[in-house]
Simulated assay, not measured.
Amino acid sequence: MYVVVAGETVLPVGGTPRRPADLAEAVRELEAAERPRWVWADARETYAPLLERGVRVARCHDVALTEGLLLAHEGRHGEPRSARAAHARLRGLPVPEEQPSAPGTLFAPEPPAAEAVAEVLADQLRRIAALPEPGRFRLLVAAESAGALVAAEMSHEGMPWRRDVHDALLTELLGPRPVHGMRPAKLQALADEVAAAFGHQVNPDSVQQLVKAFKGAGVALKTTRSWELKRVDHPAVKPLLAYKELARLFSAHGWAWADQWVRSGRFRPEYVVG
């Protein structure tokens, strides 16, 4: 086993850490020569940069996922499972709250030292060995860690995505892409129809304003969910239902969504394991 800390260290378990000039190349060479089980705090922060360099590995032990499994088995599901948290528990220190660890996350914490990850690994292996059926739990850990590799590789590879076709569909359904903070033309037209039906301006995105507007028209609503609106006889209902449907498309799969998840002609979602 080798412990790898993102960007800097390779530590043979039980050996002396080294900081190669090129971590990706060091991992590539060791993988080809030994095919070890790699140990890292979190595959999302360690494996993704290796994939960017064309380095793939066959096996790993994901410390965060393993800690989550052990905590759940111990009846402590929901406690922080990061390597940093596990190391703090091991040392009797205050346990830090869980923080995002995906690459590029703003204000993401620094990765733990390789020696700290090795300590957590040793503790995890001891806890697993003490279980009634350690072999079955080791298999679960291996499967969960393999899932982390697959998730990172799927995110890296992505799926083919025609951005031009997506843009054309959005334009057909919503109108041209609006400037930031504005509604697409067809959404705005429906919002204007809703306002005209009430006789005054109403924000169709505001539940409070809609409930108040319907109340003013003599219609008592508890929610503005589609199933409840469909039972109401009022001229605002038809454009409002159409608005809600297109608004979901705009917010969930519109241009901003594509900006975030589509790169170089590939849809690259983040797959969450565990």
Rank of each mutant, 00 (worst) to 15 (best):
V4Q: 02
A6I: 02
T9D: 12
P17A: 08
R19Q: 13
A24E: 13
E25L: 08
R28P: 01
L30H: 10
R35S: 11
P36W: 12
D42M: 05
T46V: 12
L50P: 01
L51A: 08
L51R: 15
V55F: 05
C60Y: 04
C60R: 05
A64V: 02
E67F: 01
H77I: 09
P80T: 04
G92D: 14
P94Y: 12
V95W: 11
V95P: 06
E97Y: 05
P100W: 14
L106Q: 12
E110L: 10
E115N: 03
E115F: 01
E115A: 13
V120M: 06
V120T: 05
R127Y: 12
A129V: 02
G135H: 05
L140V: 06
S145V: 02
S145H: 09
A148W: 05
S155P: 00
R162I: 00
D164E: 15
T171P: 00
P178Y: 09
R183Y: 13
P184D: 06
L187M: 11
L190S: 04
D192H: 13
V194D: 02
A195V: 08
A196K: 14
A196S: 12
F198I: 04
G199N: 12
H200I: 05
D205P: 01
F214M: 09
V219S: 01
A236E: 06
L241P: 00
A242S: 12
E245M: 10
H253D: 10
G254V: 05
W261R: 15
R263V: 04
S264E: 15
S264K: 14
Y271I: 09
